[in-house]
Structures are given as C-alpha cells and as structure tokens.
C-alpha cells in the first residue's frame, strides 16, 4: 500500500505527514500528528466529536480522507487557545459548567466556533440547530447553549469598542 505525502497547515503551522489512501483525517491528526483532541465517537459522522474546521468549514474529520486535506488549512481544538489564553468559548464553557465528562467538548467547541464565526449573534434556536451534529450525552445541552450564547455576547462586546 503506497502512502501519500500530504502537505497541510494545521493550526497555522505547516504540517506534513504520510497517509494511506484510506486513512481519515481524524486518524491522521490523532495517529500521525499526535493531536488527540479530536475524538472518535462513532466513525460515521453522527456524533461530531471529531469536528475540525477545514478551509473555514466545520467538518467531521472521520468523514474526510487525510489525502483530501492536501493544501488545506486545518483548525483543531489544540489551536483554539492562543498565547496561553483560553478562547472566550472555552472560558464560557468552564464558567457555565457546560461539560461533564468532556469527551464531546472539543468537537462542540469547534462547532460553536464555526457558528460564531459565521453568525456572531445566533438565537437559541439557531445555536441548537447549528450544533445538532454534536451529540452530548451528559449535559442535556442546556449549559452548552447558555455558554455559547454568553460567549457570543462577549465576543460581540470585544468587537464593538465601548
């Protein structure tokens, strides 16, 4: 089985790896690049635990071949905090206790980031539908949605100088 040389950008840094043709982006991130923040909950795109952002689009990394990432920009949970500072979404998830076991949290945070990148002022309903691809079995979503809406408000505040 000949391997494919893939050149990408991961969290802003150049990243190269060798992928078998059938390898998913999730396996490449976890096994080739050591980025285990994205989780496999189902392997079929039904839980969202493996969510990453590729060229600005939220995707399930289990539903994408590693080879498809050639030349693309991949953002993972490991790149969300910047310069030792948590992203407001991460901070709000902690303040609102929006996680219990934490397994779905990296995927939910990537989903929430994609939401707020495209819609800075989502309604509760918009947030719920946008994040419907991220299963959480612990929280019942209540605190997750509150954290996302609160982070959205804070980010809007940051953008609008007082």
């Amino acid at each position: 089985m000949s391997k494919i040389h893939v050149t990408t950008t991961v969290n802003g840094d150049p990243a190269e790896f060798l992928a078998t043709p059938g390898m998913t982006l999730l396996d490449a991130l976890r096994d080739e690049l050591g980025l285990t923040g994205a989780k496999e909950g189902c392997g079929s795109g039904d839980c969202g635990a493996c969510s990453v952002i590729v060229d600005g689009r939220l995707v399930c990394s289990c539903l994408m071949l590693a080879a498809e990432a050639e030349g693309q920009r991949v953002e993972t949970i490991e790149g969300m905090a910047q310069n030792g500072q948590l992203h407001p979404l991460q901070q709000k998830f902690l303040e609102h206790a929006a996680l219990q076991c934490g397994f779905c949290t990296p995927g939910l945070l990537m989903g929430a980031k994609a939401l707020l990148d495209s819609n800075p002022d989502p309604t509760e309903t918009e947030a719920r539908y946008f994040l419907a691809g991220n299963l959480c079995r612990c929280t019942g979503y209540d605190k997750v949605i509150r954290a996302v809406l609160d982070a959205a408000a804070e980010l809007r505040q940051e953008r609008t100088p007082a």
Partner: peptide
C-alpha cells in the same frame, strides 16, 4: 442532509 459538519462536505 446531515449536520452542519456534513453540510460542510
């Protein structure tokens, strides 16, 4: 068709 994630692809 599917979730936001699936919509991305």
């Amino acid at each position: 068709i599917g979730s936001t994630q699936v919509q991305g692809r």
